[in-house]
Write a protein that binds this DNA or RNA. Structure first.
Length: 296
RNA sequence: CGCAUUGUCCUCUGAA
């Protein structure tokens, strides 16, 4: 079952629905039965692909057949609701989990009717770090930073220790709003708690510094990354390119592109879009066209 | 008992 579920996960990630179905069939043929993990994988995949009603059906079936809906199940739904703009419903469910466990999914007026009354083997599923992280991320994306902070405090009150995901979410949000000093304040707190800067931490900081044209600080961070063995990825470079383009440092921007190619980090659409736009704006259509051709 | 599933970074219909 573990093996098949792992395979299934692989196919689902790639969006290979047909192959995924084959795995499921083969699994049953060999008398391996789907469990929580398997169902969660399917549920997540359906939701990500926008098949919400099918996902809901699956949820019903899981419920009826006594697969325990667990915290992961709830987190998948909560994440789906956040991304679907139903943030408040997501928050409501997360709150409800403290009392009703997974039955909170079936609570007031959503489409998940009549879910388990959570006598799930006597242990009910309660919100975890990921639940909070999901909600906080949703609030941040919606620009509701104050509420996000409240959730953060609430989380600490439940004895859940924030990890770098949660910190990164705040740092990113501040950087995006250009509130660099707030971002660095969070960073300080993060490091005090023993979390090291992650790749995304660096990327967010670079994005933020870039919006203030603090190029030297950016290069400083790049050096630090190198020292600490954190390898930049496409996003890192794209953030730098954005900053250089905004500052009209076009040749610097193209040398970043060269550096990427040299390091074997493939530029993506975002990289080329920014560069081409910059050169067009500068009236240098020749280079713009060259870039276009490289992109192809 | 252990192994598989969930959360954070670049991509704006860049037009005035």
């Amino acid at each position: 079952t573990v093996t098949y579920s792992t395979l299934l996960h692989g196919y689902c990630c790639e969006g290979k629905v047909f192959e995924a179905n084959n795995v499921l069939h083969e699994m049953m043929m060999n008398n391996c039965f789907p469990n929580n993990y398997t169902c969660n994988i399917l549920l997540h995949s359906l939701w990500k692909r926008g098949k919400i009603s099918e996902a809901e059906e699956l949820l019903q079936k899981m419920n009826e057949r006594g697969y325990g809906l667990d915290t992961v199940t709830c987190n998948i739904i909560i994440d789906g609701l956040c991304n679907g703009g139903k943030l408040d419903k997501a928050i409501e469910i997360a709150n409800g989990m403290w009392i009703h466990g997974s039955a909170a999914l079936g609570n007031p007026g959503n489409s998940f009717i009549g879910l388990v009354d959570d006598s799930n083997n006597g242990k009910k599923c309660i919100p975890d770090l990921i639940t909070y992280s999901t909600i906080i991320s949703g609030l941040c994306k919606a620009g509701r930073l104050d509420e996000a902070k409240k959730k953060f405090i609430e989380m600490m009150g439940k004895n859940l220790q924030p990890d770098s995901f949660v910190y990164d979410t705040f740092i990113h949000s501040f950087c995006k709003e250009g509130k660099i000093s707030s971002a660095f304040r969070v960073l300080k707190d993060m490091e005090k708690k023993g979390c090291n800067k992650s790749l995304q931490t660096y990327n967010s900081l670079i994005l933020g510094l870039g919006s203030k044209n603090q190029i030297f600080e950016i290069y400083g961070l790049m050096d630090e990354m190198r020292e600490r063995g954190v390898s930049p990825n496409v996003c890192t470079y794209n953030n730098i390119i954005r900053c250089l383009c905004d500052g009209a440092k076009f040749q610097d921007a193209t040398s970043i592109l060269d550096e990427m190619l040299q390091k074997g980090i493939s530029p993506n659409i975002a990289s080329f879009r920014m560069l081409i736009k910059a050169f067009c704006k500068a009236g240098d259509f020749r280079v713009a066209q060259e870039l276009f051709e490289i992109a192809l």
